[in-house]
């Protein structure tokens, strides 16, 4: 509406710069979905509990439904669309496919972002640490066990990749 106060927000999402005008009350989730066209970030509750909307905001996992777009102005954001390597799934995504870590896929974006942060901070997690690490993202489909297996296996694959790279040097 023309009489409404708007602000200009600029963010870098998955390496691409986006600038858009929005009302100050627009959430980061809505900005990503509507202004940037990145609908991979999902909304399951819009009150900060389900974790489906999790993105990496300057490398830290954040709930985009509880963040206003203006708060993210100038930030570097990674969403689920930024995980694949070229046309290949990354290690974590591959592991989710292999271990059936997703069914409907709706929580999956949040799970992947959350697990990305988890594995960066703790490349060698125990099962309990994985369960605790992903406990902020709710999944209604899988019963979690397959997600835990996916994350554990991805951790192993990432370690293998690192040691391979090391020995090749």
């Amino acid at each position: 509406m023309s009489d409404k106060h708007t602000v200009t927000v600029t963010v870098t999402v998955n390496g691409q710069v986006y600038t858009g005008d929005c009302e100050p009350r627009m959430t980061l989730a809505d900005f990503l979905r509507h202004e940037c066209g990145l609908t991979g970030t999902h909304l399951g509750c819009e009150h900060g509990v389900c974790g489906a909307c999790t993105v990496l905001l300057d490398d830290v996992a954040a709930r985009s439904c509880l963040t206003f777009a203006v708060q993210a102005d100038g930030a570097r954001i990674t969403t689920v669309e930024g995980l694949a390597e070229g046309e290949q799934l990354n290690t974590l995504q591959k592991s989710f496919q292999e271990h059936h870590g997703l069914q409907c896929g709706f929580c999956t974006s949040g799970m992947l972002m959350c697990a990305t942060e988890l594995l960066r901070e703790n490349p060698n997690p125990t099962e309990t640490e994985v369960r605790e690490g992903i406990s902020g993202v709710l999944c209604r489909c899988t019963g979690y066990d397959s997600i835990v297996k996916s994350v554990m296996a991805a951790a192993g694959d990432q370690r293998d990749a690192v040691s391979e790279a090391g020995s090749a040097r």
Partner: peptide, 12 residues
């Protein structure tokens, strides 16, 4: 179904 859903390319 998975590659689409894992990359945020699902359409809900």
């Amino acid at each position: 179904e998975d590659p689409r859903l894992l990359t945020g390319h699902g359409t809900y």
